[in-house]
Structure formats: structure tokens, C-alpha cells
Design a binder for these strands. Structure first.
Lengths: 192, 192
DNA sequence: GCTCTGTTCAAGCGCGTGATTGAATAAGTC
DNA sequence: GACTTATTCAATCACGCGCTTGAACAGAGC
């Protein structure tokens, strides 16, 4: 569907408040009424696009994390956790666009996103389990917070100007740059 | 000025695209024409508010970093770097609002923000100098990237839901939680 | 009392927005 | 060919937007 593609493109550039019906239908080479006809409203189309982007991202991250061996190192864990983001950023195009939509939405989640809470919790639980083998002294609550900080850092890179640097690299280069930082954040410093 | 206060409040809640002239003047209990009269336009008022918030933040961060001793530990450095943000978040109210405005603006900097590039570079240079004493093997370019990642993580915490947790803590608690993560990110993992 | 200056106000302008409408067209189905 | 259904289209609606206008008001200086 051309409308959905145009919605994803515009959402990634301008955010969910910056997409007007006219420019969307112009970009999709469609009539304004087509949006109401197929999706009910502009908002419904945008919501659908955002949810689709999030679902794809969660699928990729969950798969990457569960593909890890039994006792991964911090770096292996961080690499798996970050791979979907790094891959999308360095690949560019629609993939990078979709990931930016998700990152934007994570700042103030749209209504109804508690629907995805269980998936977020599941992924974090998997990461926590792997982390505990390496960081035995840290409370679970703190580990979860560190994971959220690491995810936040990735989201920031997807959105902010600093991420342009990463987008220009190869996937390997970006991984070599980012994984030590993420792993360092997960490990922390105060308790050895 | 009531208009400026209302602008800061609304900007921190909705971002720079989400503030309408009507709701601003309603919140400030003023007439719509007052904005044009005193500031020229709505955009000019918002720009002024954002720049003021950024300047205050840069001042605080620069002061905190330059107040460090000659060879600070990674934790001391991270604590100084993060103090203005942590302080504003835990303090709440207008301080927290102002910091969120800055964080939002950092995602896609308004036109003319290259004006502040020198200040950002200055602060980063100070941090790099202190970092080099502790991380002798890392390239300057990579250190700068790590600093930007750490700053990004703080900005993310200021904006995203995960930050609510931090906002409810005391400044000391928040520092104990965040500083090890930031210091860990700055140190990285792959080269000891 | 009169005027000048700074400020506030209700009313309205032009414009872009999301959404709707009824006609026109295309594609099956018998 | 006739009827039904799905889709597209130009035209239009009401609304909220940023901004301007000219009148009204208040205070200071003379």
C-alpha cells in the first residue's frame, strides 16, 4: 500500500505531529479521501504504521537476544541487544526510518502502548537473566534500569545528530564503536 | 513575564511544535496580541525561551566540570557532568521543565544553534582532557563520541518514561544510580 | 484639561487542517 | 447489456491556526 509507505517515510522525518493529510497523499500520489476510505482517519493510519514499526523492531530484538548462547559475555549480550538498531541505522532507507519512528514513539508512548508492555518486559527479563551470570552483585531492579538506559542511548543515537556519524559506518564499524559503550554502561563501575 | 513562564511550561510538556498561540495566551491569562507586541511572533518567543534554557544548562554544566580537581576519577567526572541534569530532574517543576526543553531541542536543533557549537566543544574538550588521564589508550575521536553518548543517555532520561523513576528520587539517590552507568559507558569494556 | 506613550483588548483576516460528500469510474457477476 | 460492488476523485465543510487591526484604556508630563 502506497499510503502506508508514505506514512512511514513522513513519520520518520517529521514525527507523528508533523504529518499533514495533504503532504501524505501528495507523497503517495493519492486522493485525500483515500485515507478515510482505507484507514478511517489520518490518525488511524499513523497509529497503524507506528505499531507495525514497533512490532518489527521487537521481533528482531527478541530474536537476537534469544539466539545467544548459554552464558554470553557482556559484549556479546550488548551486541545482540543493539544489533537490530545498529543494523537498521547503517542500512539506512526505510529501515532507518522505521527505527526512528519507534524511537520517537518511545519518548511519549501513544495511547494503548501498554499493550506492548509484556513484550518489553519479556526481552528485559531475558537480558537480566544473562546479566546476572556476569554481574552477581547488582540488584535486579538496577539491572533493569541499566538495560533501559542502554536502550535509551540507542534510541538517542537513532534520533539525534550524533547518530549521523553511526549511520555512515558499516555495520561492523558501528558495532565496534557502540558495543563497548553499551557493555560498559551495563556493567557500571562502582562494584568492580 | 507571565508569557515567558507559560511558554517554558508548555514547551516542556508538548515540544516546540505543540504550542499554539491560543493555549499559550490562555495559560498566561493574556491576549493573543500581547505575544506579537512583546516578542514579535510566537516563534520568536519560543526561540527565546529555548535558548535561555539551553544557556542556563550550559553554564551549569561548564561550571560543574571546571570545578573538578586536577585528576578526577571516572565517577567524579561523570558526577560533575551529570549533576546539572540530575539536579534539575530531582528538583522538578520549572527546572525539570527547562531541562526537558533543552533535551528535546537537542534531537533536532533549531536553526541557528550552531551558535552554541563552541560551547559544546569547550565542555567536551574539558571532559576529554580529564578522561585521557584515566583512559590513555582511547582515541580522542572515540572519547568525544562516548561523551556524546553519555549526554544522550541523560537527555533520554529527561524525556522518556524511564526518567520518571529518577524524578521521584532524591538527588543523592539518583546520583548513586546514574553515575556508575555513565562512568561505565565512558570507560567502555574492550580495552581493560 | 489635554496630549503623548505604552499596553491591552475584541474582532476579524487569510490560510491550512482533517474530514465528508456525491458523482464518476472500474471491476466483477449474472 | 444490466446490476452490484469497490475505489477514486474534485469540491467543499467547519475549524483552529498565527497574526493584524483599530479602538479603548491608563498613566505621566505639561
Amino acid at each position: 500500500m502506497r499510503l502506508m509507505e508514505a506514512a512511514l517515510d513522513l513519520l520518520s522525518e517529521r514525527g507523528k505531529e508533523g504529518v499533514s493529510l495533504r503532504e501524505l497523499t501528495d507523497a503517495a500520489d493519492a486522493n485525500v479521501a483515500a485515507v478515510s476510505y482505507h484507514f478511517g482517519s489520518l490518525q488511524a493510519l499513523l497509529d497503524e504504521a507506528i505499531e507495525e514499526a514497533l512490532e518489527r523492531y521487537l521481533d528482531a530484538q527478541q530474536e537476537a537476544v534469544s539466539a545467544l548462547g548459554p552464558e554470553p559475555t557482556l559484549e556479546e549480550l550488548a551486541a545482540a541487544f543493539a544489533r537490530p538498531m545498529i543494523s537498521a541505522l547503517t542500512k539506512g532507507g526505510r529501515d532507518r526510518g522505521a527505527i526512528r519512528i519507534v524511537a520517537r514513539a518511545a519518548i511519549d508512548p501513544p495511547a494503548g502502548w501498554d499493550r506492548f508492555d509484556a513484550r518489553f518486559d519479556q526481552i528485559r527479563a531475558d537480558v537480566v537473566r544473562a546479566l546476572k551470570a556476569r554481574l552477581s552483585g547488582v540488584k535486579t531492579r538496577d539491572l533493569i534500569f541499566r538495560i533501559r538506559c542502554a536502550a535509551g542511548m540507542l534510541n538517542w543515537i537513532a534520533l539525534a545528530p550524533v547518530g549521523a556519524e553511526v549511520s555512515d559506518m558499516s555495520e561492523k564499524q558501528a558495532e565496534r564503536l557502540l558495543v563497548p559503550i553499551l557493555a560498559g554502561a551495563l556493567r557500571g563501575t562502582n562494584l568492580r
